[in-house]
Design a protein around this nucleic acid. Structure first.
Lengths: 272, 272
DNA sequence: CTGAATATGGACTATATATTCTATTTTTTC
DNA sequence: GAAAAAATAGAATATATAGTCCATATTCAG
């Protein structure tokens, strides 16, 4: 029974499990089988629960963890918890470290941002609600004109959407809030609003969407969580959670969802 | 603050969160916002971790749980652990699944764009020239004012850079080309130019950079290949190759490089 | 069948974590 | 601007849970 070192990834964990499977005594094999069939439970259960599930005593389960190479259940659980949250590290503290060290090279910083972007994209696949996405596409495809709005951090996204629509020949207007003009009156029946807004929500954006909704103009909102005041008003919410590094969101996932939305709308329009 | 009964489902939980969101004191609102943006973490984190994430004391987070209607954190966590049905397939499986079944619906498109974004980010790490990056950071850190320019597809990137600089207190001007004014005269000795441009290169951008270089104003150019007319003129070129899907580039890599540049400049300025 | 080796169950202990309490600060109200 | 109310931070406490140990049971070799 070599103890070696603990698996560092889930594939490595599975490897190990497979390798041990046959030469394990009864109770420990029960553990192995239960774990194999219920991997996901490890992250959210206690030893007692896992042991009960496997039909063994907690202490037997502990031995199983140790034979797998971990010091105990907690260490094994950490592997699954971390991989569940996509290894989202605490970027804020890491950035602080970078700041303190000061002389960090650009390469290290780049790696951090690439990692944040990658994690965001993966998270997007997991969390996006395809039904809402399709509904949003439908809503916006029928619009006479799409009014795009986004301030501050969301402005790059809004301008990219606007560029994409332009390129595909979809009628769209980018509301910039320039000079505090909100061009409310330009939004007429048959149009639709596509807003991009992240907490803290820009008042200009919230205002525009709210006023539009009051007039029965449909609205789609790209935002950071489904808990957004605009939901009460009846807007379709597309939630994207970005991993942020320090004070900066990567925007990768948001832009990705934005371009998907734009292209889907563009093609849908063409075919009708 | 009525205690009523605890939400029994996640939608009910969200409802409650939304309902409370505005009439919550500072710290508790921080909790609400963090929870809204990181719902999935609740199942696998401790109060201490959640509190740290939200930037509050554990006790504040406990109060938040109670106001949400639970007796404490454990009860709230149970809701999320129970509803964590698991079986969340990993990134690749999910991607394949979306590609196959997604087909014409939004899902298939999304999978393609996510993949394009991810590939771009990976490519970025491999191809970026760290030495040039560090030189670019040095050049721009010493500038009195950074003049940012980017048209069409590059405009979102330019505006994001401009936003990031603003947030970090780095003096920067976004040249939009609005009304065909190029504000050449605003660029004076001691300043620097940061241009974003992809083939086909916008004349406004090329003009601005060329004229600046003639006057010995240093320029950094974020572009798609090292064969760019501006190199001859002496600009520092940062090349990014984006993977594109259909007619659309993902921008992920470009934005990632842009934010790295911005943050590196911001921190460098602070430390000098 | 007997003795050695191994596996198991369950009680015990250590520790991590949730929860509560209170002094202090901040905000609100008059 | 002072008093009252509410909110907050941090220490103190309670509790749930992981981890250990050992007596007993089981398996295996000869």
């Amino acid at each position: 029974m070599n103890e070696s070192s603990a698996p560092a990834t889930i594939p490595a964990f599975e490897e190990r499990l497979l390798e041990l499977a046959d030469r394990l005594p009864k109770r420990l094999r029960q553990c192995a089988e239960f774990v194999a069939a219920n991997q996901d439970r490890i992250a959210v259960s206690t030893v007692a629960e896992m042991a009960e599930g496997a039909g063994v005593q907690p202490s037997a389960f502990m031995r199983f963890c140790q034979i797998m190479g971990f010091t105990g259940f907690s260490e094994m659980q950490r592997l699954f918890r971390d991989s569940y949250v996509g290894g989202w590290p605490d970027y804020t503290t890491r950035l602080d470290h970078l700041r303190e060290k000061g002389g960090e090279t650009g390469g290290g910083l780049l790696a951090e941002f690439v990692e944040a972007g990658r994690a965001s994209l993966e998270g997007l696949l997991k969390t996006v609600d395809l039904q809402v996405l399709d509904e949003a596409v439908a809503t916006l495809s029928f619009a006479r004109v799409i009014h795009v709005i986004g301030m501050r951090r969301s402005f790059p996204v809004a301008s990219y959407l606007s560029y994409a629509f332009e390129k595909m020949g979809v009628p769209a207007v980018l509301h910039s809030g320039l000079g505090r003009l909100d061009n409310q009156n330009a939004i007429v029946e048959g149009d639709a609003v596509l807003a991009v807004t992240f907490s803290p929500y820009a008042v200009e954006t919230m205002d525009l969407v709210e006023k539009a909704m009051e007039r029965q103009i449909p609205a789609v909102v790209l935002t950071d969580s489904t808990v957004n005041p605009l939901r009460k008003a009846g807007a379709r919410l597309l939630a994207v959670s970005e991993v942020d590094f320090g004070a900066f969101r990567s925007l990768s996932a948001t832009l990705c969802l934005a371009i998907t939305l734009a292209v889907a709308i563009g093609t849908r329009r063409l075919s009708e």
